[in-house]
Design a protein around this nucleic acid. Sequence first.
DNA 1: ACCGGGATGTTCT
DNA 2: GAACATCCCGGTG
Length: 195
Amino acid sequence: MTRRVPRAFYDADARDVAPRLLNKVLVAGPVAARIVEVEAYAGAEDPGSHSYRGPTARNATMFGRPGLLYVYFTYGMHFCANAVCGPGDTPTAVLLRGLTPLRGLEIMRARRPKARRDAELCAGPGRIGQAFGLTRDHDGADLVRADRGVTIVDDGTPAPDEPGVTTRVGLREGAGDALLWRFTVPGAVGLSRPT
DNA sequence: ACCGGGATGTTCT
DNA sequence: GAACATCCCGGTG
């Protein structure tokens, strides 16, 4: 059983959507993997968010409708993927940080020859971009319509009742101990770090 | 296992 | 000109 995830699912604050996105499945053509680690990014009140200082050419997709895929380029070599949330036109988003590979493992291995183990294929936001072949061409794709072959589906696995909750990773601004906006499936394969 | 630094180029100040 | 929602490699213990 595989259900489409409707737009209404994304039409709420990323901090509410993020834990509910756990155990859903990211699909890009023949490649699929289970979402086991995410981070929420809010808008004007979140100094760690790309949308904090208002719209720019790069973050335009975050200001679009909930359910879009926001792909950004960072550190001169990595593409990272987010699900745009809301509510409404509020520019929040959920960063995908860790996935458990499910289908298309051979393709992922070919795209990520440096990965030593399958658990490393999608363990980290930049690695997800590599394994799924994401580039700026995917920025703005509509996940709800499987635009450009990219979508998120529900295969019947519920989100955990008690997800792991920690601070966000890799930030200067917005890294405060009070901002517990990283969510994980405890013990899952494909986490970017153990906890 | 843990840590430090280099890669690489876009984006914003 | 600095920062960057990162990754990989080579050092040391």
